[in-house]
Design a protein around this nucleic acid. Structure first.
Length: 277
DNA sequence: CCACTCCTGCGT
DNA sequence: ACGCAGGAGTGG
């Protein structure tokens, strides 16, 4: 579900609802998340401490306490919600943190359990989460960042699609926004990254920046069940060029959008606007 | 580079 | 019943 624009929208809506509130004792479902639900003791140092704010890198959301905080990865189907403590529980609610003062709580809901919530103890710990990740796509408007990514991109033997999905190269793009960026840059998803010219790479990274910024401005893409921290849907699904539009006419040339399986995932593209060479 | 895995739910 | 789903990791 969530790529950088969805996670950023969750963060923007979550922040004012939790900032300054104290985390209560967590309740959890005991079902394993991606890395097992941590034992209660690992969360205990956060209990009673106020939340200072939130941050994000790529698809990873951080909730900051006085020292340390929470690392939240939404996986495919994770939701981070703030709701009244007496509001009905959605199926697959795995974590609940009462927030004081007030009657609300922070809830983590994740049917597929590909996501993860765990504590980080200090900035050094948090840095280990970010270290393996490339720059956030919102920073691609800085020439030095774009230049560094461009060089790395043109060094890999993989397809453009696979390269852009690699969080070590750029952190935050997923299947939707990669397909969209490649369409905007008029580049084939199947082309080898290595074969890109410098101007093509520049064009592509500008497109990546654009789709992410537009996605944030439109509060994310709700195809099935993505919602922000207040339960509101996004808007960007009405502005997609190719993703989930198999058989529909390309907005540029009218050719039917195609879907092909690439590395076990769907790639949507316009075969006319995005020539392989 | 691909295939396959973790899970549940939904549309055909 | 089957294929597919916005992620990420592993192993061949």
């Amino acid at each position: 579900m969530p790529e950088a624009p969805e996670v950023e929208t969750v963060r923007l809506t979550l922040d004012p609802l939790i900032r300054g509130k104290a985390l209560g004792t967590p309740w959890w479902s005991f079902l394993p998340l991606r890395n097992r639900v941590p034992d209660e003791a690992s969360f205990r140092f956060l209990v009673g401490r106020p939340i200072r704010g939130t941050s994000r890198h790529g698809k990873v959301l951080f909730v900051h306490s006085e020292t340390g905080g929470l690392v939240v990865r939404l996986g495919m189907s994770g939701r981070c919600l703030v709701q009244a403590q007496d509001a009905p529980l959605a199926p697959h609610t795995h974590l609940r943190w009462p927030l004081a003062p007030g009657e609300t709580e922070l809830r983590y809901v994740d049917p597929r359990r590909f996501g993860d919530v765990r504590p980080f103890v200090d900035e050094e710990d948090r840095a280990t989460v970010i270290a393996p990740l490339g720059p956030d796509p919102t920073t691609l408007d800085q020439p030095a960042v774009a230049q560094a990514v461009s060089l790395a991109l043109r060094r890999t033997r993989r397809s453009l699609k696979a390269a852009l999905l690699d969080q070590a190269l750029i952190a935050g793009l997923g299947n939707i926004y990669v397909c969209e960026a490649l369409f905007i840059a008029r580049l084939s998803p199947f082309r080898a990254a290595k074969g890109l010219t410098a101007p093509e790479a520049t064009r592509l990274l500008a497109a990546c920046h654009q789709v992410i910024q537009d996605g944030i401005a439109r509060r994310g893409t709700t195809l099935n069940d993505y919602v922000d921290a207040e339960g509101r849907q996004g808007d960007n699904q009405h502005h997609l060029f190719v993703f989930a539009r198999e058989g529909d006419p390309c907005h540029t040339c009218g050719t039917a959008v195609r879907r092909k399986t690439q590395a076990n995932r769907s790639t949507y593209y316009c075969a006319r606007c995005q020539r392989a060479r």
